[in-house]
Design a protein around this nucleic acid. Sequence first.
DNA 1: CTAGTTTGCCTAGGAACCCTAGGCAAATGA
DNA 2: TCATTTGCCTAGGGTTCCTAGGCAAACTAG
Lengths: 200, 200
Amino acid sequence: MARAGLTAARVTQAAADLADEAGFDKVTVSAVARVCGVRDASLYSHVKSLQDLRTRIALLAGEELADRVAAAVAGRSGRDALTAFADAYRDYARAHPGRYAATQIRIDPAALADSPKALRKIDTTYAMLRGYGLEEPDLTDAVRLLRSTFHGYVSLEAGGGFNHSRDVQASWERAVEALHVLLEHWPAAAAPTAADARDR
Amino acid sequence: MARAGLTAARVTQAAADLADEAGFDKVTVSAVARVCGVRDASLYSHVKSLQDLRTRIALLAGEELADRVAAAVAGRSGRDALTAFADAYRDYARAHPGRYAATQIRIDPAALADSPKALRKIDTTYAMLRGYGLEEPDLTDAVRLLRSTFHGYVSLEAGGGFNHSRDVQASWERAVEALHVLLEHWPAAAAPTAADARDR
DNA sequence: CTAGTTTGCCTAGGAACCCTAGGCAAATGA
DNA sequence: TCATTTGCCTAGGGTTCCTAGGCAAACTAG
């Protein structure tokens, strides 16, 4: 019988494409096997389990996203860098909803260690923020805020959370602008307040 | 045979509790039936399908969350209101991870219309922001930014996205503070820029 | 070229899950 | 009290995940 010539990478690619077309939750071993023209049991030579398959998609997407963002930010700084970062991030999420959804799953740290690229997205964020003159721990706080906002925005947008008539693209640009302003006027280390006292 | 006395509400409650304990993806008809001490087929008298069950959890969680947030914000304004909103939101998500995860699923608009309470969370956000003197369309932009940041933050936190040594609670408080500052210095309607020109 | 090894894909089959159909008995109301 | 409704049941079909074991294509060594 003719062989399909599958590899783990090829299977992951097919699964990622399926995720983008049909939704990440539609990625099943059977469905991917169908796409590959193969019986479901045959995929288990290349992939350990459904979870393994999903982790591979997540790592693939993480690397792709990190590459796009890094390329967009390269050679820019300040507002330019922030805008490029934000747009590259959102564009990827919109173009690859299934892959982006995959990046949200909790992945086994051991598997993550095998993919240093996916981790380096965070480094890109840190590098970009150095232009704003922030020092630790404000740097980490700002990185978390940016990641949260970007992730939250594309996540809500993908989930149809913005049904108001206001144009989403315009709204996004204002949000990025607002974040830029925020980074330039990052509140100085807070004077002790009730909130800080509660902070252990 | 003795009856278990189930109702749609009771089933939803059990399913929501299971979601919080085991994870939203572990909510299956069979598992909920086991918890209720009943055969899986029996649940279909109360619930149309697995999707229906999940939608019910999402609506329940949406209402609970809206209630908590509304109660927290009541009688406050400005920074107080923002902090109360943010903390109530995050506290709920941390206390009820499964319920919170449920709120992220895409729900049939028809089903959503039956639950006006869940929708009113947005209204609470708008009401809170009026204290900052924003007018449309900035108001909507700000609401989207806040929702995104809060959702993104608790979402990343729940997914274990913050492994840096920096204390998450302290980071969160700085983020909320930063958002407060941002709202007070919300950038004026942008002067026409290249970005705006692209905006249709 | 040939013989042994590896490997890619197969069939078979068990377990869990979703859901429908149809039955019986408990609860309800005339 | 008796008919109706309703809550839960068993039976069973379809899908999916995954394991075990087999066969033949592709590679490797003599």
